[in-house]
Simulated assay, not measured.
Amino acid sequence: MYISSESLIVILFVGLVAGWLAGKVVRGAGFGIIGDIVIGIVGAFIASWLFPRLGFHIGGGIVAEIIYSAIGAIILLLIVRLVRGGGRF
């Protein structure tokens, strides 16, 4: 698999924005640039696995990818909060 430098920049940008949005929604603050990117990219993987199984589709384009990734990242952060926080939101 070959990823061009432009594709890598788009992936990092989407991950950064999605992770930042998820951090704002769940915790009220971001996790730093690296943390936001990692959370956003993992959220994108969660969303790409979960949403087709649920029949959920909102469209194409970069805005849709940011929304998908942010929702996946929010799900990730809620699961982490449940595991680490003893079941409290």
Rank of each mutant, 00 (worst) to 15 (best):
I71V: 12
Y2Q: 11
V38H: 13
A22W: 04
I58S: 13
A44W: 03
I79W: 13
G23D: 06
A18V: 05
E6M: 02
V26A: 14
V14E: 08
D36A: 04
L50P: 01
L21E: 05
I74Y: 08
D36V: 00
I46Q: 11
G32P: 00
S69K: 02
P52F: 01
A70Y: 02
G23Q: 09
F89E: 10
F51M: 11
I46Y: 13
V38M: 14
L8K: 15
I71R: 04
A22L: 03
S69E: 02
G59S: 10
G87F: 05
I11C: 03
H57M: 04
I33Q: 07
I3E: 08
L8V: 04
R81P: 00
G23L: 07
W20M: 08
A22Y: 09
I66G: 04
V80H: 11
A47W: 07
V63T: 09
K24P: 00
L82Y: 13
G40C: 09
R88F: 10
L77D: 11
S7K: 12
G35K: 08
S48N: 10
G30W: 04
L21W: 06
V10M: 06
G59H: 09
I9W: 13
G28C: 02
K24G: 11
L77E: 14
I62V: 08
I66P: 00
K24C: 07
F13C: 04
E6L: 05
V25W: 15
V17N: 12
Y68D: 05
I62A: 08
G32Q: 07
I71G: 05
R53D: 01
I66E: 06
A47D: 10
I41E: 06
I9A: 15
V17G: 09
A47I: 01
G55D: 04
R84G: 01
L21N: 10
W49P: 00
V42Q: 12
G86P: 00
